[in-house]
Simulated scan of single mutants.
Amino acid sequence: MKQVFSLLMIAFLSTTTFAQTTWKVDPAHTQVSFGITHMGISEVEGRFNKFDGSIVASKDDFSDAQYQLTIEVPSIDTGVEMRDNHLRNADFFDAENHPKMTFKSTSSKKVSENKYKVTGDLTFHGITKPVTLDVWYRGTVENPQNGDVISGFAISGEVKRSDYNLGPDFPEAVLSDSVVVDVDGEFKKQ
């Protein structure tokens, strides 16, 4: 009987020790944005207005976190309708044939207090490539209005548009090959 009790305790402790928590993106308090240099002299910025994402972790400091993000490409918004329509067409994102952009992490490495290098697969325009992003875990708080537990993250990195065949007819003198990507926002504990 003691052995059965011991085995049950070990099983219980194992499942509680490795319990994972899922955090879902709060779109009302999150921005997914990008910036690219135009003509070598100015920065054009934009964002995606529709997206979904989650973080799954078993550790409170998110050192073992797994990140996943899905972006609706047609929701691109640079504040100029004519440019947005051009970015949606086959010259760039080809949003009709490739309406989603996804990122799924494959590893996370702690580099300092609350800062990580997260590597994963970025897929869009029909191409998947590994990218490494900088992640800053900004803390966890409880919302006093509704009791939600939320965590803040700033995620940033650079991708090369040439890696994804994005705007191949536009040379680097017109549009930089490097595109800065930023996700800044809140994730609610589920």
Rank of each mutant, 00 (worst) to 15 (best):
M1H: 14
Q3M: 06
Q3N: 14
Q3I: 05
S6F: 10
L7S: 12
L8T: 07
L8D: 00
L8F: 09
A11M: 08
F12T: 06
L13E: 15
T21K: 12
D26G: 00
H29S: 05
H29T: 04
H29G: 09
H29L: 01
T30L: 04
V32H: 03
S33R: 11
S33K: 11
G35V: 02
T37M: 06
G40N: 08
I41E: 15
S42D: 14
E43C: 00
V44F: 12
E45I: 01
R47K: 09
F51V: 13
F51N: 05
D52V: 02
D52I: 00
A57P: 09
K59M: 10
D64P: 01
Q66P: 00
Q66S: 12
Q66D: 10
Y67E: 00
L69Y: 05
E72C: 03
T78E: 11
T78A: 15
V80Q: 14
E81L: 13
R83N: 04
D84H: 13
N85G: 11
H86L: 07
H86W: 15
R88F: 05
N89Q: 11
A90M: 11
F93K: 07
F93V: 11
F93P: 03
F93S: 07
A95L: 05
E96T: 14
N97I: 06
H98A: 03
H98L: 00
P99H: 14
M101V: 10
T102Y: 05
T102R: 02
F103I: 03
F103D: 10
F103R: 06
S105C: 03
T106R: 11
T106D: 12
T106M: 11
S108P: 00
V111Q: 13
E113C: 00
E113T: 07
K115N: 09
K117F: 03
K117Y: 01
K117E: 14
K117H: 11
G120Y: 04
T123E: 01
F124M: 11
H125G: 02
G126F: 01
P130V: 09
L133D: 02
D134T: 11
V135E: 08
W136L: 12
G139V: 10
V141W: 09
V141F: 07
E142A: 06
E142H: 07
E142F: 03
N143H: 09
N143Y: 14
N143T: 13
N146F: 11
N146C: 12
D148N: 15
D148M: 07
I150F: 13
I150S: 15
S151T: 07
S151Q: 08
F153T: 01
S156L: 12
S156Q: 13
S156T: 13
V159H: 10
V159G: 06
V159W: 13
R161L: 06
S162L: 06
D163F: 12
Y164D: 04
N165G: 03
N165E: 08
P168A: 04
P168C: 00
L175Y: 09
V181K: 15
D182W: 02
V183Y: 14
E186K: 12
F187P: 00
F187T: 00
K188I: 04
K189I: 04
